[in-house]
């Protein structure tokens, strides 16, 4: 099928545009994007930069545009204006969702989205970084190398005991973990995580924080979260969005004491 050539071209492009780690390397640049839904401005001239191997948290009140921003990056929404550039070269607005995933951007949704009628093992198998064309899938076989990678990830997200269980039977927190595990199997350069700890127990939340901190340095992570304790645990740069624009940026402590931030969270 046609997509064989398409995706291999993108992969070549992606690997060509991923130079060996450069400390000040920008992995994703959002430039002046605006999105409006029937008059409502969800994003208003938003510009941001994410560095390679950085962990960044994004907070903001409801309707600040956090999810819309992720939609723009991953191709779910096309911005009315502005561009998203990946690895300095790839213009994301020209790619489809699947192509964006193939260049190395993984995304976890706000509501855990997994394949409920597949087993946990199969969920991870489908997520694995590999040839994703129809032709390949028709003849694909799970070999020992893949099996090892999957059990490794199962261990990381603490689901080894549930490998053969249907994913739909997992608890809410476990579903969140499975989705994170699927992202890891994708081995993306950039992970976008929309409210990854929603519905998790305190214990699970803490473990997730540990996991993210361990990923820092190997991947770039963007975490959208409402749980301030969790954000504090990540000890990262924090960006505050409000009404589709950036309000401020900085360390967690500095952001928390910023009067503008206090106002948007409490003042209304």
């Amino acid at each position: 099928m046609n997509d064989v050539t398409d995706t291999s071209k993108i992969k070549a492009e992606a690997s060509a545009s991923a130079p060996a780690s450069n400390k000040n390397d920008v992995i994703l640049e959002i430039a002046n994007i605006s999105v409006s839904f029937d008059g409502f401005k969800a994003l208003n001239d938003l510009s941001m930069k994410f560095m390679r191997n950085e962990l960044r948290c994004i907070i903001g009140p409801n309707g600040a545009g956090k999810t819309t921003m992720m939609d723009c990056i991953t191709g779910k929404t096309t911005p009315d204006e502005g561009t998203c550039t990946f690895n300095n070269t790839v213009d994301l607005s020209k790619l489809s969702e699947a192509e964006i995933a193939l260049v190395g951007i993984g995304r976890k949704f706000q509501k855990p989205t997994i394949f409920e009628s597949h087993t946990v093992f199969e969920n991870l198998e489908l997520a694995m970084k590999t040839d994703k064309t129809v032709f390949f899938s028709l003849f694909a076989v799970v070999d020992d190398v893949m099996r090892d990678r999957i059990s490794e990830t199962l261990k990381t997200v603490n689901l080894s005991a549930h490998a053969d269980q249907l994913a739909g039977r997992l608890s809410h927190g476990q579903k969140q973990w499975l989705e994170i595990g699927m992202l890891l199997m994708q081995d993306p350069q950039l992970l976008l995580l929309d409210e990854p700890v929603a519905g998790m127990t305190d214990d699970e939340t803490e473990r997730t924080g540990e996991l993210f901190n361990s990923l820092k340095g190997k991947h770039s992570l963007v975490v959208v979260e409402h749980d301030m304790d969790f954000v504090a645990q990540l000890k990262s740069m924090v960006t505050v969005l409000d009404q589709g624009s950036m309000l401020c940026e900085g360390e967690m402590a500095a952001v928390q004491s910023d009067p503008r931030v206090i106002e948007v969270y409490l003042g209304r």
């Binding site: 839904f37 029937d38 999810t67 706000q110 989205t113």
Partner: peptide, 8 residues
């Protein structure tokens, strides 16, 4: 159809 924000 109205364009709208859909939650996922």
């Amino acid at each position: 159809a109205l364009k709208g924000r859909t939650a996922d």
